[in-house]
């Protein structure tokens, strides 16, 4: 088992999932419902990046910026059309959650109507991996790690050091009280949707860049994102980052573990190799999720 390589793989996956999990957790933090459409907003954005970058020939960074803005605005528009009414009426959060499921199904298929089901790649040539501390890692992956890190730090500063962040936290704690303190909570909520989705688009684009872009991608990454967000304690952005890392490590390590070797005290006595069937890999995130939910419903870090 090549520990350095497994660690590197896990870090990259955590960087990709983390940005998406943070956005998911933000929506939950403020609006108290789980947004099933989060990953699909992100993939819509990733397709916009594709069109701007490979279709219109814009610079990649500019494309990501434009797509993040566009997808953010779409998320705000959807909020205005649907969720705002729910907030006014005081509709239960589960209703909003089911609605987001409907939005997810609709969005995913609108993407298919526009871009077809064909899978796409951004025009980035294959790269020779560099060797860093014994692990192979490509320049794109390093770029993903750096982008994710910068975005997270920016996010931290935004939440902790700005008026906006304070207002957001106030709304999260008590929306009524915040309004009483002259915070325009509707406007804040719109900004929050915008930011959460923009972060998601960056994350979604990175996943598509590292792997492949197709309309169903949103659904394929949904459960790992939920898992990361819940692992860290939903509503807690730092938890979401930590959750993504734990999940990524678990996925990479558990398949590599030889339980036979461990049970026999490192080969002390004869015991065949016992490994988890690779067919169960998608179940790893589910099972971790269920175990965490059962043992520690507030996640690793807990909520605030």
């Amino acid at each position: 088992m090549d520990i350095a390589q497994i660690l590197a793989n896990a870090l990259v996956r955590a960087a990709e999932l983390g940005l998406l999990a943070v956005g998911l957790t933000m929506v939950f933090d403020i609006l108290k419902f789980t947004n099933f459409a989060h990953a699909d907003y992100a993939i819509l954005g990733a397709f916009l990046v594709y069109t701007f970058n490979c279709g219109a020939g814009l610079n990649l960074f500019l494309s990501v910026f434009l797509a993040a803005v566009a997808a953010g605005l779409i998320a705000v528009a959807i909020d205005k059309a649907i969720f705002k009414g729910f907030r006014k009426k005081g509709t239960k959060s589960v209703t909003a959650m089911i609605t987001s499921l409907g939005i997810a199904i609709a969005l995913r298929n609108i993407v298919r109507m526009i871009w077809t089901s064909e899978s796409r790649t951004y025009a980035i040539p294959i790269q020779r991996p560099l060797r860093i501390l014994g692990a192979r890692i490509t320049p794109v992956q390093i770029g993903i790690l750096i982008t994710s890190l910068v975005a997270m730090i920016g996010f931290h500063l935004l939440l902790q050091r700005t008026k906006f962040g304070k207002a957001l936290r106030a709304i999260s704690d008590n929306r009524v009280l915040a309004s009483a303190c002259a915070i325009d909570s509707e406007k804040m909520i719109q900004w929050m949707w915008f930011l959460a989705t923009a972060f998601g688009v960056v994350g979604g684009t990175m996943i598509a860049m590292e792997h492949l872009l197709y309309p169903r991608l949103g659904f394929d990454i949904l459960i790992p994102i939920f898992c990361a967000a819940i692992l860290g304690g939903i509503g807690n952005p730092y938890g979401a980052m930590l959750g993504a890392l734990v999940l990524a490590l678990a996925e990479n390590v558990i398949l590599a573990l030889d339980f036979g070797h461990i049970l026999s005290f490192g080969g002390l006595f004869e015991l065949g190799s016992i490994q988890i069937k690779t067919g169960y890999k998608p179940a790893i995130s589910f099972v971790i999720l269920v175990i965490v939910l059962l043992l520690r419903p507030t996640g690793i870090l807990g909520r605030k």
Binding site: Q5, I207, D220, I221, E251, A256, T278, G279, P282
Partner: peptide, 20 residues
């Protein structure tokens, strides 16, 4: 023997196992 699930974006863990 590695069985993998279709429609996933990350096969690194499966590949690690393949070569273990």
């Amino acid at each position: 023997v590695v069985d993998y699930e279709l429609n996933k974006v990350d096969y690194k863990a499966e590949l690690t196992r393949l070569f273990a």
